[in-house]
């Protein structure tokens, strides 16, 4: 694909990923409220873990040839790269820690990391073991 078309695809996918993250953040705002009046950033954990699962699935679909490299790149580098976030995750952990909510900070840090890595592996294994075939091909 021409470089300009690739860039356009990445920009579109990235913009969509960021919007999707905002919508999840907005939708899960109430879910993060703790009984004691505190707040846990559930939405960041949710987008990061689900995005990691999907990144594994996309990598699996690329391995089986079900997804073309350009579509795979738009999906993983573009959409999922923007849908998930590292900077907000880090700043939230520092903020929770500084605010005295240290257990929440540790849960956000270690929970996201362990769940994210596991989810990526699961997504990859699921798609590869299902043997998702290239679109339009007959088994």
């Amino acid at each position: 694909m021409a470089p300009l078309a690739t860039m356009g695809m990445l920009a579109l996918a990235g913009g969509a990923g960021a919007v999707a993250r905002s919508l999840v953040d907005w939708g899960l705002e109430a879910a993060g409220r703790l009984p004691g009046g505190g707040h846990f950033p559930v939405s960041t954990m949710a987008v990061n873990v689900s995005g990691a699962f999907l990144a594994g699935a996309v990598a699996g679909a690329l391995a089986t040839g079900a997804l073309s490299p350009s579509l795979g790149s738009a999906a993983s580098v573009g959409f999922l790269g923007a849908f998930t976030t590292f900077s907000t995750w880090m700043v939230q952990i520092v903020d929770l820690w500084e605010g005295g909510e240290r257990r929440s900070a540790l849960l956000h840090l270690l929970g996201s990391l362990a769940a994210g890595v596991t989810a990526a592996a699961l997504g990859l294994m699921l798609v590869v073991s299902l043997g998702v075939a290239p679109l339009g091909s007959q088994p």
Partner: peptide, 22 residues
């Protein structure tokens, strides 16, 4: 901008692959 410039999915996938989970 900063939310999308940084990413978690690639890090998690790289971690899973390097740890040999695949």
């Amino acid at each position: 901008l900063l939310g999308s410039f940084t990413t978690f999915s690639a890090l998690a996938l790289d971690g899973a692959l390097l740890l040999g989970m695949d």
